[in-house]
Design a protein around this nucleic acid. Structure first.
Length: 165
DNA sequence: ATAAAGGCCACCC
DNA sequence: GGGTGGCCTTTAT
């Protein structure tokens, strides 16, 4: 698993989005996390748990700038994916789902060539560290159900609605 | 090493 | 609608 090195200047900040306040973390290598925590403290705890031994500094100026870029200018920043090969293959597959379209957990399993690994796909999608930019909200159940969403199904619905217009 | 826990699915009732 | 068994990866014992 690739690590952020000491020279990549990892930092984080909070900023408001159409879906509530987000926690965004990044380094010179790109965005490594975008989450919608219940509160700032739990968001930070989760960040530290996930990227252990990486010390993020607080840089809300850059955080705000990224968020404007993403949600107002609608530009795609560079991403920095950290995960197992299996997870990364899935996160990359998710990025192929066009905006406003949806897929299913089973189809993603098919795309990455592991048709039996549907359940593991669900787990890997649940482990997605970069909400919205890695569009895990576009993945629904085969039976049409909404499936799950790490930060609450309300946000998943909002994201889907927001993209349609 | 092994167990337990998942954002699932097909199949049954 | 609800329950079961199988599937595969990750994380925690």
């Amino acid at each position: 698993m690739k690590e952020l090195n000491a020279y990549s200047k990892p930092a984080y900040g909070f900023s408001n989005t159409p879906f509530g306040e987000c926690l965004i973390a990044f380094s010179d290598d790109g965005i490594c996390a975008l989450t919608f925590p219940e509160d700032r403290e739990s968001g930070l705890l989760e960040l530290e748990r996930r990227f252990q031994n990486i010390k993020f500094t607080y840089d809300n100026y850059k955080a705000e700038k990224y968020v404007r870029q993403i949600f107002e200018l609608k530009e795609m920043p560079e991403l920095y994916l950290i995960g197992t090969p299996f997870q990364i293959s899935i996160w990359e597959a998710l990025q192929q789902i066009p905006k406003g379209k949806t897929s299913t957990y089973a189809k993603i399993a098919e795309v990455i060539g592991r048709p039996k690994a549907v359940r593991a796909v669900g787990s890997a999608i649940g482990a997605n560290p970069i909400a919205f930019l890695i569009p895990c909200h576009r993945v629904l159940r085969t039976d049409g159900g909404l499936g799950g969403f790490r930060w609450g199904l309300e946000i998943k619905k909002k994201m889907l609605d927001w993209e349609i217009k």
